[in-house]
Write a protein that binds this DNA or RNA. Structure first.
Lengths: 229, 229
DNA sequence: CACCGAGTAAAACGAACGTTTGAATTGTAC
DNA sequence: GTACAATTCAAACGTTCGTTTTACTCGGTG
């Protein structure tokens, strides 16, 4: 009886309302700028609810990230596993690996209820966040998927020096997170229609073309410079 | 007499001390996280000095940006002017334009007193800052140089559709700002020696190779898709 | 019915925030 | 030396922050 009632009525409705409101307000105002009173008012819950359900504001921030990022990164690893499985022993094309990583992010910006889109933008902000706990959390959550994809790229590009690969992955990661986070800069460069801003399919094509070309760019003189030094 | 004394003793020493301290602390803790008491303590000045010399904390933030960004963007435009002058009527190579833009940023990260490096990292943070006044300020300061470089790229790449160019510039801008701002993510991808992290010459080569390839990437199917739609 | 634990509610906590005040201090001109 | 403006200083302003406390409202159990 208890079981069925729990199943009918969401077990943590207040928690979910807080997480949803926080996702949006953290994105709009930042972590420090979004106060507890603002969050709880938007969520329609009491001020004390955050501390009751999460313990503290910092714990709430972590919960906001984990709710989306844990499944996302798990999905990324599964996608790469599937890719390598179906390829047998043959090396993967770099563009395939790029798309596998991209698609998880891009799927979220098409979230009809906007929660996913908010989170993606929030995530882009988090990389440049000065707060050390947040940086540490992001790094910790991303470490396994980073290692996994780095290995896949290394196998796909056996001729690219390891150090060079690390930098190009850094560039790629930056392009992706910035593109999704800094929504207004496109309008700054040119009056861009916001309607195709979030066309995930089109954005995937554009990003893949750009990133693949950058990843496969011919080695400049810098490698020789380094060898000589 | 007044003139010479003013020349010997810095006219706005307190102002400069505040700007230097703010640059570093805004980068470390963010704009909201760096309190007036922290800023003034680091600068070794009285708490009221900020409001006396700048008027408010927001005005201080604007002053921090303008002190570096105004000369930087002016230098970028001059560099592009020189490039086009010396090329006569012949079209510029995309890599030349990229380097002209890059070099101004990269020169700052070699600042021996670290002030410039702090500012570059601060700038990367500002693009994803949620605060509307800051976003507006950044956009306003960057608008002329953006327009100028966009026109130069359009002339250098007459076959690239305008909308496609806007996106690729957005990607490039994202790569640059993220690369310079998110210093810890490289270490996340791989244990990277921090010593060559700020080798401006090497970084210029790597970034130029990556960005040029991305900018010149072959057009995917998306343009056909768009034409059909 | 009494009882209990989970959750909600309103109010208050001390600390830290940006800003302002008014007196003290400095440097310069007459 | 006196006068005057510019700057520095300690102290306090009112507000807002994250958090805690205390009382209250329930549904389920014995």
């Amino acid at each position: 009886m208890t079981q069925t009632l729990r199943a009918l009525k969401p077990p943590h409705e207040t928690r979910t309302r807080i997480l949803d409101a926080s996702e949006e307000l953290f994105m709009q105002h930042g972590f420090e700028g979004a106060s507890m009173r603002l969050l709880t008012a938007k969520a329609g819950v009491n001020l004390a609810a955050v501390n009751y359900h999460f313990g503290s504001k910092d714990a709430l921030i972590e919960a906001v990230f984990r709710r989306r990022l844990d499944p996302m990164n798990a999905e990324r690893i599964v996608a790469l596993d599937r890719l390598e499985k179906s390829a047998g022993g043959t090396p993967l094309a770099p563009a395939e690996i790029i798309r596998a990583f991209l698609r998880t992010s891009l799927a979220m910006i098409e979230d009809s209820r906007c929660g996913g889109r908010n989170f993606i933008r929030l995530l882009g902000r988090a990389y440049t966040e000065p707060s050390k706990p947040i940086r540490g959390l992001i790094g910790q959550l991303y470490a396994p998927v980073m290692e996994r994809y780095k290995a896949a790229f290394a196998r796909a590009l056996p001729n690219l020096p390891g150090e060079e690969l690390v930098w190009r992955l850094h560039f790629m990661f930056g392009t992706l997170s910035y593109t999704l986070a800094a929504t207004d800069t496109v309008q700054l460069i040119a009056g861009c229609k916001p309607e195709d801003r979030y066309d995930a399919k089109l954005l995937e094509e554009r990003l893949t073309a750009f990133l693949e070309a950058g990843l496969l760019a011919p080695l400049g003189v810098q490698s020789t410079v380094r060898k000589a030094a």
